[in-house]
Simulated scan of single mutants.
Amino acid sequence: MKKYLAALSTTALFSIAPYALASSVDLTVTGVITPAACKPSLSGGGIVDNGKISAKDLNRTTHTLVGTHPLQLTVTCDAPTQFALNPTDNQAGTESSRSWFGLGMTDAGEKLGYVRVDVKNTQADGVPAQAIDSEDDGTSWSKTFVTSPGYILSVGSAADHSTPLYVQHLTMDFEVSTQIAPANSLTLTGEVNMNGSVTFDMMYL
């Protein structure tokens, strides 16, 4: 039955568009296998603990900064390598302010706040460098002082912010700030857990 239907379809194709079979489309598969491997890590296991915050200490109509914590990002490669880190917000859609990482939701379905990650001192193989990011998957790069969703993060020289460096050992000092949404927008009748989570995936350029 299937073969009969297929034959009918082919006949119809010839009668309606006799030149259709003369056209074609190519599938091209490219890529590069790199001998180098890089391993990213965060100091303190990447954990930021803001402790317990009393609801009465939150601003009613504006965001409240409840903690600022330093973390150091380290990337170690087998050899000098051109790479970037792609931050994925595991709580996407819960951020109470655009451009930053989400902090989860209250039990009532309200956006709890956001996490901002500032990039401070950057060193590439022991030399002062500049954090750079790209929103077009590496086609163009610019100087940055933060890392945020939708932008891949890399490092350029202090003088050239347009091209990622080949680096074997990178350190970036992060400053992680936690902001809670205005208290008048939240249901705070019980304990509410902060649940921010960001994954930095390694990309070889």
Rank of each mutant, 00 (worst) to 15 (best):
L58F: 12
N59D: 14
R60C: 07
T61Y: 15
T62E: 15
H63K: 10
H63Y: 14
L65N: 15
V66H: 06
H69P: 05
L71Q: 09
Q72V: 15
L73I: 11
T74V: 15
T76V: 11
C77Q: 06
C77F: 08
A79Q: 14
P80M: 12
T81I: 03
F83R: 00
A84V: 05
L85R: 06
L85I: 11
L85V: 08
N86A: 13
Q91L: 10
G93D: 04
G93F: 02
E95M: 12
E95K: 13
E95N: 14
S96N: 09
S96E: 05
S97T: 04
W100Y: 14
W100E: 04
G102P: 02
G102H: 01
L103T: 01
G104V: 07
M105K: 05
A108S: 15
A108I: 05
G109C: 07
E110G: 07
K111C: 08
Y114W: 10
V115R: 05
R116H: 03
R116W: 04
D118H: 08
D118R: 09
V119F: 03
K120Y: 05
N121H: 11
T122A: 09
Q123D: 03
D125H: 00
G126D: 00
V127F: 02
P128E: 00
A129S: 02
Q130G: 02
Q130E: 07
A131S: 10
I132P: 01
I132G: 03
D133G: 07
S134P: 03
E135G: 11
D136M: 04
D136E: 02
G138L: 12
T139Q: 11
S140W: 04
S142I: 05
S142E: 10
F145Y: 07
S148D: 08
S148I: 01
S148V: 10
Y151A: 15
I152F: 08
L153D: 03
S154Q: 01
V155D: 05
G156I: 01
S157T: 14
S157G: 14
D160Y: 09
D160S: 13
H161G: 06
H161W: 11
T163M: 10
T163D: 09
Q168C: 07
H169P: 01
D173L: 05
S177C: 04
S177Y: 05
T178W: 01
